[in-house]
């Protein structure tokens, strides 16, 4: 079996500049794989970020997020 590449696994990513730190994506994620950063973005929000593993690509965080461009979810 070929080795798994990055694009074989689902992931989510947050555009930390567009995130408003509302934490609704955290509440929505069935896998609890989203967290809030200690750092502030340039609009003074603590942005969400993907902790890096076990995202299933379900997309629920995307729909829970009010910002059009803050979350991108990839599902192979």
């Amino acid at each position: 079996m070929a080795e798994k590449t990055a694009l074989d696994v689902p992931f989510m990513e947050v555009n930390s500049e567009l995130c408003k730190g509302c934490q609704l994506c955290l509440a929505a994620c069935p896998k609890s794989v989203i967290a809030i950063s200690e750092k502030l973005n340039s609009s003074s929000y603590h942005p969400a970020f993907y902790t890096g593993a076990e995202c299933t690509g379900c997309g629920l965080c995307f729909y829970a997020c009010p910002e059009p461009g803050a979350i991108r979810v990839y599902k192979p």
Binding site: L18, K20, C22, S43, Y45, Y63, A64, P66, E67, P68
Partner: peptide, 15 residues
Amino acid sequence: AKDATHYCPGCGHGN
């Protein structure tokens, strides 16, 4: 911030 909406954090209008 021409990529973000004018809505408050957590506002349902965005969804």
